[in-house]
Computed example of a mutant assay.
Amino acid sequence: MRNRPALKILIPYLAGIILADRFDVNLIFLWFLSVICLLTIFFMYKKRWLSLSSAFLFVCFIVIGFMRYEIDMIPPRNIDRVVYQDVGVYGTVIGSQKERSGGSSVLIDAEAFPQYNPYIRMKSKITIRSWTDDSLSERYRQGDTIGLYGRLTQARNARNPGEFDYRKFLQRQGIFGIIYLNDEKIYQLGSGGSVFLRWIDSLQRKIGAVITELSSDYETESIFRSLILGEGGDVPLDLYRAFQKTGTTHVLVVSGVNFAILAGCGYWFFNAIRKYVLRIGKYKTLLEKEIITYIPVFIIIVIYLLVANREFSVFRAFIFITLFILSVIINRDRDIFNILAIAGLIILLFIPGAFWNAGFQLSFVAVASIAYLMPYLDTQLKKTKWFR
Rank of each mutant, 00 (worst) to 15 (best):
C265S: 14
L57R: 15
E99T: 09
Q115C: 10
S53W: 10
A343C: 08
I94L: 02
D378M: 11
P375R: 15
L30C: 09
S104Y: 13
S327E: 00
R334I: 04
F259Q: 03
I223W: 03
K282S: 09
L197C: 06
A354E: 02
Y119G: 08
S255D: 03
L52K: 11
R68C: 02
I207H: 05
R205A: 15
L189Y: 15
N78V: 06
I94N: 02
L305Q: 07
F32N: 08
A112D: 00
F29V: 10
N258I: 11
I62V: 15
W131S: 14
G247T: 04
I200Y: 12
E99A: 11
D335S: 12
A368D: 07
W131Y: 12
L252Y: 07
Q361W: 10
T145V: 13
Q380K: 15
V367Q: 02
F259E: 02
I295Y: 08
K275Y: 06
A15N: 06
G247A: 06
S194Q: 02
V365Y: 06
V63R: 14
I299K: 05
E138D: 10
R139Q: 02
Q142R: 12
A341W: 07
V93Q: 00
G232E: 04
W199T: 15
Y218H: 09
I18K: 05
I346S: 02
